[in-house]
Amino acid sequence: MSFLMAAEEGANPLIPNIWEIAITAIGFLILLFIVTKYVVPAFEKIYQDRKEAIEGGLAKAEKAQAEAAAAREEYGQQLESARLEAQKIREEARAEGDSIIAEAKERASVEAARITENAQKTIAAERASAQASLRTEVGTLATALAGKIVGESLADDQRSSRVVDRFLADLDAQQQAGATR
């Protein structure tokens, strides 16, 4: 058992000194305490902060992207609505134009009809007046002519008008015969 002798004699290196164990254990436990209490939380906090910073950055970028997408969507929608509106306006304009044209056409045709009618009326009236005046004039003329030719006074109004009427009737008949022929 010589290895249990004092250290100067060359102790067996496998036999521990109880104080070595104690000191090392105490030192280790103190260090473990310090590490648990201060070092690990500090480093974990650094990790956490960095992770949060990175995740925050990512979230921000994501938000910006989402915003951009939303803006683009909105822009697209606006463009679409503008296009629709333009189309609507064009449609409306076309419809309006059509209606204006139709109205104008109608008005023109109405006007034309009116003008035609007026003209016809005027013509008819003129014709009637011309007929009337012609009748009297032709009668007078014919009477005068006949009086001159016949030499017979046709001053007697009753007779002369009878003659004229007969003549005109003949004329009418003749005309009608001409028209049928």
């Binding site: 521990p16 070595e20 164990i21 000191i23």
Partner: peptide
């Protein structure tokens, strides 16, 4: 090296 004292190594292994 402290661990060349066997007591220190024992202490750590015991823990």
């Amino acid at each position: 090296p402290t661990m060349s004292y066997v007591g220190s190594a024992y202490a750590l292994a015991i823990i």
